[in-house]
Structures are given as C-alpha cells and as structure tokens.
Design a protein around this nucleic acid. Structure first.
Lengths: 297, 297
DNA sequence: CGGTAAGTTGAATCTAGTCAAGAAACGTGG
DNA sequence: CCACGTTTCTTGACTAGATTCAACTTACCG
C-alpha cells in the first residue's frame, strides 16, 4: 500500500523497513514498545517490556491535518511513514512551517507544557503515525523505569533540531539556508536507508521558503544558482546532489556545518573556544581574529 | 550580596523572592524539590517529597562559563538568580546567542540526547544556578512518579520558546525582532515581579544582534527608531517601554504576537484555521483571503 | 485538451549589512 | 579627581542581498 504509490520508488520517502512484521494496513494496528524505540533510534537496555504491544497507528492522508494548533493536548505522535509539515499560524493569518517531520520524528511535543498543541501538523503524503498518549507513556515508564530517558532524549533531540534551525535562520543567507536544508534532508533520508544524493521533495517552494524564512522566488533562485554552479541538479522537485562538499562550502566558506546539520554530530570541542577561555571581561564575543584566515582556505 | 550591586535596584534582574528561606551565600547550599518546582512555576500535586532537599547551588561570576559546548553532559541547570547567554559556536569561529536564560529558565537540555552540551553558557552577571543531575532527577522520579511530568513540561516549554524564536527570525524584520525581544524581556521580568516597562539590559548590542540574527548597528538603529517614534525610551542599556501596544503593533500590523511572545499564551484556536479546514488539496497554504482586512483594523 | 497550481526568471525597490567616523560610558592608574 | 585607553554605542553613506511585482513556462489533473 504505502510502497506502490509513485513511479519513482527509490526516491520516495516512506517506511524504512518494509517487512517490519507489523500490520500496517488497517487503522488501529498496534505497535510494540520495541518498534517505537527502533523507530526513534533509541535503544533501551531493558528487554523485558519491549515486546509488549502498546501503541496504536493512525493513517493520515495527504492534505489532512493530524492535529490543529489550539487543540487540547493528549498524545505525542511519531511518524512511521510519509512526511508532514508542522505549521505555526499566528491568527493574523501569516504562517510559518516549523518542521518537516519524517519517519522517526516526533510531533506534538510543543503541547506538553501548555496542554494545547501550538502548531498544526499537516500530512504532505499518505502517512502513518504512532499514537503515543502521554498518559500511557507515563504508565509505561512507571512499570519500566529504563524507558524514562526515552522521552527526555527525544525531546532533547527535537530541541537541538530547532536550535540548529534558529542558527540557520540567524546566520545564513538565502543560498546557505537552502544548502543547509538540502543537506539536512539528504542526511535524514540517508539515515533511513535512501539515497543521500538523489531524492524528490514533498513540499512546494513556498513551503520550503516558509520553513527557511524566505520567499518562494528566493528559494527558486537559490536552487537555480546551485544548479548553475554544478553543485546540484534540479528538475522541479527532483534533486540530485552532485557535489555535497561544495554544498557544505556554500553554508560557510570552509569547515563548519558538516555536523551542524547531521542528526547526531560529533561532540568535538572547538579549539577556538579553548583559546577564548581566558576568563573575566566576557571574552566570548567580539573575538573575530581567527576565522577570516580560515575563510580563505 | 546579590541585591546590592547596582545603583538601580528596582531595575536589576535577580532573584524574585528575596526571603526564600534558603541559604544563598555559600556554594553548595541546598535547594529542595519544592523550591525547584516553584522556581520553574510547575506545581506538583504530591506534597510528600517536596520538602526534601536535594539539589546543590552553584555561583557563577560574570563572564565565566557554566558549561562549554562539547563538555560531557551530566546535569541540567536552572537559573536561580542572574542572567546567562547560551552561545552556539560553530568551529569556524562565528557565534550565535541562542538564549538569554534568566531566573527560572533551564539550561543544558540540549545535551541530554547526544550526551554532550551543544552550547556554551556564559554568565552575564553574578548568577546562581540549581544543579540538577539527570541521574538524581531520574531517581527522584522513580520515588515520586508525580514528578515525572516536571521535566517533560520544562523541556516542552523550552521547545516552544525556541520555536517562537524560529518564528521571529523567519518572519520579522529588524524592528519587529527588536520589538519582540523587548516585549519578551518585559513579560519575563514582569512574571518575576519586576517592572514590565522599565529595565536595563544585561547584554550588549552585539549580543542582542547575535540573538536576533542582526548586526549590532542594526539593533542600535532599530532601538533608535523605536525611541524616535515615542514607543520606547533608550538610554544606553536602560529601556523604558512607553507604549507596549505600539510595540506589539511593530511586530505585526494589528493583533498578532501579543501572546506569541508571552511565556504562556492563550490556547485559542484561530477562526482562520477553522475556515481553512476544508480537507484535501492542502488548503493550509496560500489561503491569504482573511488577513488583509484584519491588518487594516 | 484546457484550466489550475507550481515553478522560473527579470527588473525595480527596499531592507539590512558593511565600512567608517565619532560620541558616550567605563575602568584603571596616576 | 582627572587623564587615559578601552569598550560600547550611535549615526551616516554606500553596497549587497532579499522582496516585490510581473510575465512567462512547465507540470498536473480532471
């Protein structure tokens, strides 16, 4: 069902493990805790509870909303197949896409604190999500304490993702943002077992622009520029990354964001930070001597 | 100690409850679970464990770093007094301020998933933080399950904050960003019991600019413009908000971000979203009929 | 085959960045 | 207490980059 939709099988997003031994046809099919931890790429040491089937699935068709901003919060959702956009709509009508959750990504966490979802999640595809009611999860954690870290880690991961987004929006120009977007998508698809260098987009230029704080024309121009530069090849929504290193170079001259973008970057501490660790007088800003040379490299 | 630093006592950030019955002089003084929940503005129904003293304090002097990006993660930190900046340093040298945590705010959550802090936290002030080792918290949650939601909620809150930041960076121009920044600061200080309309900044123009994705000159110009417009009064780092509604108006013509910025906005679902709930064909974008009229109001 | 949505491209405008100079505040030591 | 250097802030003129408006092309879906 999920598999045979498009003429470009290899390029489509979808579920990474076709034969995952879970019924996926009918709404309400159940997902075990083990499936959930696998989906989230978080391993739990305690095997005892993992086989327990606990969570329901829900299918969402293209264009349908999974949750609406303002709805009362009760469940988290983990994407099992397909692709979403989460949209923040301030009530004067302007919208911004906050994320494009894909397989393994969490949705709905912004509703935990206030008790109401803050963004609307719309499917860009026929998608399936695992429904994780927070109450069920709490009960489960009570029974199996080694699962406690699960939600902490997933929330932390989400936080890092949004922080990276803030960095992208605050630091990069149009081409850099688009390059970062493509690299991020490439890495995520790669992690799911798809091609890192050839994929097609599920979202419009306008949605990309909204996500990146740009207008659709600017996105189009940036893609065209990268195309002309021989770094990528663009045919409508079909993207081929010809030179990934050059793409990284667009983000910042030399070095940089290789791991700012990837899901699980290296923990390396920068030498620059070490150099600037002279205390007092707030040396953490206005340093600016070291990177102009690096930029030339 | 903490109180008598400046000539402008009423305007300074600091601890909101002067006589909180906790030793605050010496490093290592302990903080009870109840204190922590109060600090975070999260109430726990289960009173039994709340009096238990569990967490240590740490004092950080101005300019000193609490944690460095790349350091191994073990503890979360909750600001008890003072003000920090959290800085993301990509190793080509360029930095971005991700947040200005103040009393009651969480730091370090970006390290939970990867096991390493992702940003450096530098004190802008002589500050005190509550040290919350994640292991201790887990143990505590095991003993008192009603505390489980505590970290979930705090993490969710942090997520919402960063999402709002992403919205600000992606949507607003320079003046709007500065206005949003001032309103946010005003609301946070107000919630701590300080004046909402008169305060002085703990950070430089460059730090504000880095936070807002602007250059320091642009921040200065935006402040000057708001000053000239009679909306605020600026004298160096001393800010007086003359017309808060006008400030909100700067963010978006009419309505809007009053509660996009405030810590705990109303859960109201927008009428526009209701109107656009016609399914299929992804009506969630390019709607654009309703808000031009609203903008005139 | 035609209508609509999506994408591309160009020219003009406007916003924020850059470069640079100067003013105000702060800290230090004489 | 004042002179000094340093940092921070302000302001101006110019430039680069993104938005806007518009025309046009291309895909997509009955």
């Amino acid at each position: 069902m999920t598999a045979a939709l498009s003429h470009h099988d290899a390029l489509d997003f979808g579920c990474p493990e076709p034969g995952a031994a879970i019924a996926q046809e009918h709404e309400g099919a159940n997902v075990s805790v083990r499936d959930l931890t696998r989906l989230l790429h978080i391993d739990c040491p305690d095997d005892a509870w993992l086989a327990r089937t606990a969570f329901a699935l829900r299918r969402v068709h293209e264009g349908d909303a999974l949750v609406h901003a303002g709805d009362k919060f009760h469940s988290l959702y983990v994407v099992r197949s397909g692709c979403f956009k989460t949209v923040y709509t301030d009530f004067s009508g302007s919208e911004q896409v906050l994320a494009f959750p894909m397989c393994g990504d969490l949705m709905g966490a912004d509703g935990i604190d206030s008790g109401h979802y803050r963004s609307t999640a719309v499917s860009l595809d026929t998608s399936e999500v695992v429904i994780v009611p927070l109450a069920s999860l709490s009960r489960l954690v009570y029974e199996c304490p080694s699962l406690e870290a699960l939600l902490y880690r997933v929330l932390s991961r989400e936080l890092v993702r949004v922080q990276n987004m803030a960095w992208t929006l605050g630091t990069l120009g149009a081409e850099g943002r688009v390059a970062a977007f493509l690299l991020s998508l490439s890495a995520r698809l790669g992690a799911l077992g798809y091609s890192r260098c050839s994929f097609n987009l599920r979202m419009t230029r306008q949605e990309i622009g909204s996500y990146l704080g740009l207008k659709l024309e600017t996105v189009s121009r940036a893609l065209s520029a990268l195309n002309t530069g021989g770094i990528i090849q663009v045919h409508q929504r079909c993207i081929d990354i010809v030179d990934a290193d050059a793409l990284r170079g667009v983000i910042d001259p030399a070095a940089c964001a290789a791991e700012c973008i990837a899901p699980h970057p290296a923990p390396a501490r920068s030498d620059a930070a070490d150099a600037a660790r002279a205390k007092k007088a707030r040396p953490h800003f206005a340093s600016g001597p070291a990177w102009r040379q690096l930029a030339a490299a």
